[in-house]
């Protein structure tokens, strides 16, 4: 099953509750009236698009009606596909790769979003591309987080640089950077402890890690990836806002997208944060991490 089909199947639930509702809406109303627009608004919100982005889309729809771009309920869907596609494809950029030396990926996020699992999948992805990969176990806080990363390292056949539980994460990162340089690794992926963005001391710790990386390799981290759980609601915005202060985020990875109705969160994130979504996690398997493609995503979201 190719990527596109996989994405399609994992988004079936979303499409059912989203596209079908829009279709029902089109059938249910002969004309566009306030009731019809209210229902449309509800559909967007229930897809986790978020109030802010929903309001924006609704403003667009109302403007479209005024400009006679939307004349009947039938015009609503294509109009929204186009508009959402625009939002999704802004700020698009490809994965950054170091010119020389190791490409450093710093992986950050709140607790339980799937950082370690995603890193396992990323390691596998780069290994499949014949890159040499080193993993840094800088989550020295959570019980058995190091073991978890080591298991993923074994699976992907990647070296894991680790200290013991409770060690200074910045020291682990320092060692990992040295190892990556001396072993001439292509990719270094750094796993950090899950932390709530509201904890100032933990954000300082993250900032220290970031500074250590910068000091050792000035153009690193080449990617600082914020992992967001797709089931997360509006708090995702706060998370990104505060994390990027401690370690400037270059992209978002959206995990657990194989659950129910939630593709919409991507639209909210892209519209409000203007942060590119780089990868999406669509399953529990090692290969279930896919580069994000706005066009594929928008099409899969709306395709019948």
């Amino acid at each position: 099953m190719g990527f596109f089909n996989k994405l399609k199947s994992s988004l079936t639930k979303t499409r059912k509750s989203f596209t079908e509702k829009i279709e029902q809406l089109v059938i249910g109303y002969a004309d566009i009236n306030e009731e019809c627009l209210d229902e449309l608004e509800e559909i967007l919100i229930s897809a986790d698009v978020g109030v802010h982005t929903t309001m924006k889309l609704m403003d667009d729809v109302r403007a479209g009606i005024k400009k006679k771009e939307i004349n009947s309920p039938q015009d609503l869907q294509p109009f929204l596909i186009k508009r959402i596609g625009e939002i999704l494809s802004t700020g698009e950029d490809k994965a950054c790769i170091a010119q020389t030396g190791p490409t450093v990926l710093l992986v950050i996020g709140v607790n339980g979003v799937g950082k370690t699992t995603t890193i396992g999948k990323l390691a596998k992805y780069y290994k499949n591309k014949n890159k040499s990969v080193i993993l840094a176990a800088a989550d020295t806080f959570r019980a058995a987080a190091i073991d978890q990363l080591q298991i993923w390292g074994n699976r992907a056949n990647a070296d894991v640089i680790a200290h013991t539980e409770g060690a200074d994460p910045a020291a682990v990162v320092f060692d990992a950077l040295k190892a990556a340089i001396s072993r001439k690794a292509d990719i270094l992926i750094i796993d950090t402890a899950g932390r709530l963005h509201t904890k100032a001391n933990l954000m300082d710790e993250l900032n220290k890690i970031y500074r250590v990386i910068k000091r050792e390799i000035p153009d690193a981290p080449h990617e600082t990836l914020l992992i967001l759980d797709a089931t997360t609601g509006q708090n995702a915005i706060h998370q990104a806002e505060l994390f990027t202060k401690a370690a400037p985020i270059s992209g978002v990875i959206l995990t657990k997208l194989d659950g129910t109705a939630k593709g919409g969160v991507v639209i909210g994130i892209k519209e409000q944060l203007a942060m590119p979504v780089k990868w999406i996690g669509v399953g529990e398997g090692e290969d279930d991490l896919q580069p994000f493609d706005a066009e594929d995503f928008a099409t899969a979201l709306f395709e019948k």
Partner: peptide
């Protein structure tokens, strides 16, 4: 349940 869960909390 994660307190940060969005609309999907209901389905879960």
């Amino acid at each position: 349940v994660d307190a940060m869960t969005g609309q999907d909390a209901v389905n879960v």
